[in-house]
Simulated assay, not measured.
Amino acid sequence: MTDLPHTRTRTVHWLATAAALAAVLGASALLPSDATANPAPRAESGKAPDPATAHYPLDCGPAGTKTDVLDEGAADFDGDGAAETVAVVRCRAQGGTPPSAVFVLTHAADSRTPEVAATLVAQKERMTVKDLKVHGTTISAKLLGYSTPDVPRCCPDKQRRVKWEWKSGKFALTPAPVAGGGISA
């Protein structure tokens, strides 16, 4: 039986994948300036923002496709007594697997609609996010990606566990070690 072209791994694929994953993880570590320890005052203290009511900075096409919240968790990351919500979100699709994004939501001072306080994984990174967990001030997840544009979007061929910890007023990204010292297939 002959392997399909996208199922054969070569050194150049591993190097390209390592470079792409490093770029994605590096970009994820650079947080927007609004991801600080001084969020806007809370409209509702004690209750985490409802991710179903938030407006997300996603490009869902010209038809304005709705978004789906795939996973969520909550914690009081900044210690102000009000919980923030972590949401894994993507554009709704009739078929296929659109990329996920991960946002941290807080209550806006003058609105019942939650606002995005931080973007941990942007839609443009073209990742699928699985296994979201929130524990204390730590968020963990598995990022699934693609070694080349030729890999079908249904079937990510790369994965890496990551965690973000709230430290010194921002989320610090820590990628987990990869088994065998290379990029995980």
Rank of each mutant, 00 (worst) to 15 (best):
74 A>N: 07
68 D>H: 12
86 V>L: 07
96 G>F: 10
99 P>G: 11
88 V>T: 03
91 C>N: 12
85 T>P: 02
98 P>G: 14
99 P>A: 12
74 A>M: 08
71 D>S: 11
80 D>T: 13
58 L>R: 07
65 T>P: 01
87 A>T: 06
58 L>I: 09
99 P>R: 04
76 D>V: 03
72 E>N: 12
65 T>N: 05
73 G>V: 07
59 D>H: 07
85 T>S: 05
98 P>Q: 13
59 D>L: 07
61 G>A: 09
87 A>I: 10
79 G>P: 00
70 L>V: 09
64 G>A: 10
80 D>L: 06
81 G>E: 01
63 A>P: 04
82 A>P: 00
73 G>C: 11
97 T>F: 12
89 V>L: 08
74 A>K: 08
80 D>N: 15
82 A>D: 05
63 A>Y: 09
58 L>V: 05
66 K>G: 06
77 F>E: 09
60 C>N: 05
79 G>D: 01
77 F>P: 09
87 A>E: 09
87 A>R: 03
80 D>W: 06
72 E>R: 14
84 E>A: 13
95 G>S: 15
96 G>C: 12
86 V>I: 11
83 A>T: 00
91 C>D: 06
69 V>P: 03
94 Q>V: 14
97 T>S: 15
81 G>T: 03
70 L>P: 00
94 Q>K: 07
73 G>P: 02
85 T>C: 03
86 V>S: 04
71 D>A: 13
83 A>M: 04
78 D>L: 10
68 D>N: 14
59 D>T: 11
85 T>V: 05
85 T>Y: 05
86 V>R: 02
70 L>C: 03
90 R>M: 05
96 G>P: 15
71 D>T: 02
76 D>I: 00
95 G>T: 11
99 P>K: 02
86 V>Y: 06
92 R>G: 06
76 D>C: 02
